[in-house]
Design a protein around this nucleic acid. Structure first.
Length: 324
DNA sequence: GCGACAG
DNA sequence: ATCTTGTCGC
């Protein structure tokens, strides 16, 4: 029963607000949208992405359509926003024939989709989730530092691995993995919905022995909605997490410290220079600690490999298991 | 040609 | 991320 009145209860507020959202069947949604385009009209990849809820999914739409083999799906009514046809000469010739056969007008683009815009709902979930994260707590270096990572067996199945090292010796002290279905494609800004179900399942498996801090291969607050996969995992699983990525999703240097990364007036994380043998990494809080603590912890467990020790082991284990 | 958006 | 030949630098 929820508390009735009086003081708010942070525990139950969090418990009520944090649940994994329903993961939409995006390929299915795309096929439904394709079926809506009337014969004789054309639409664009970007307009389809917009109908899915985010124009940023346009490249996923393009690659998904290019992979369609089912001849009953009317992919030929999709063109580039410039009016050009996509693909190589053969594909263009085939598409032009199909369009000519139905006397298609090439403009204006048809955009009157009926859609629930599922990506918009997911983006809203990310914004709500980021408000439940904490990122002002200074956290000393704990005794162990863990990491999680995924390797893909196929486009729809992955190995999620956990590894932990002793913070002093940097020796591997714990590891585990699970094989899990992956329900969602990769779309920039929405990695959370591809990897979070697997990571939550993995964390449940190692819950009783998990390290005080978990590094996550992906962004934390360095995200357009301050809600990278490390933020979501921290909030949903109630863990202290740090986002560690090899590429920068958002955030730019600003001012005196060229390693601090800002978006608007928010300092979201840091660039960690790798030097010669290591590679540059981007670090930001997931939840439960501040950016300075996050970067100090990552530094402490980063020796001379390309990536910090816990991430290296989680990556190596998941990759090895995915190969079998 | 430029810019490029985690995994 | 994964798929992979050839290429480049130490």
């Amino acid at each position: 029963m929820p508390p009735r009145c009086g003081k708010s209860n942070p525990e139950s507020a969090v418990a009520a607000a944090v649940r994994m959202p329903p993961i939409p069947d995006l390929p299915g949604e795309l096929r439904q949208l394709l079926a809506q385009v009337p014969p004789g009209r054309v639409t664009s990849f970007g307009d389809l992405a917009e109908a899915l809820g985010d124009v940023g999914a346009a490249r996923w739409v393009a690659t998904e359509i290019a992979a369609i083999r089912d001849g009953t799906i009317p992919w030929h009514r999709v063109v580039k926003r410039t009016g050009e046809l996509p693909g190589d000469a053969d594909r263009q010739r085939w598409q032009r024939q199909r369009l000519d056969a139905e006397y298609a007008v090439r403009e204006p683009l048809w955009t009157a989709f009926d859609s629930t815009r599922p990506l918009r709902a997911l983006a809203d979930w990310q914004s709500r989730t980021s408000r439940l994260a904490t990122f002002h707590v200074a956290l000393p270096l704990p005794d162990r530092v863990g990491a999680v990572d995924l390797s893909y067996v196929s486009d729809t199945e992955a190995i999620a691995a956990y590894a932990a090292v002793d913070a002093k010796s940097l020796q591997l002290v714990d590891s585990d993995f699970i094989r899990v279905p992956v329900p969602f494609p990769y779309i920039p800004g929405y990695l959370t919905f591809r990897e979070l179900p697997a990571l939550v399942a993995l964390v449940e498996r190692v819950r009783d022995r998990i390290a005080p801090v978990t590094l996550v291969d992906g962004s934390g607050r360095l995200h357009p909605r301050r809600s990278g996969v490390a933020v979501a995992l921290g909030v949903l699983a109630g863990l202290r997490t740090v986002g560690v990525s090899k590429h920068r999703l958002c955030g730019r240097p600003r001012g005196d410290d060229t390693n601090a990364l800002w978006d608007g007036d928010e300092m979201l994380g840091f660039r960690l220079d790798g030097g010669s043998k290591r590679r540059t990494m981007y670090v930001s809080p997931g939840s439960g600690l501040d950016a300075a603590s996050a970067v100090a912890i990552v530094r402490a467990v980063w020796r001379d490999r390309r990536s910090p020790e816990p991430i290296h082991w989680a990556d190596a284990i998941s990759r090895r298991e995915a190969k079998q």
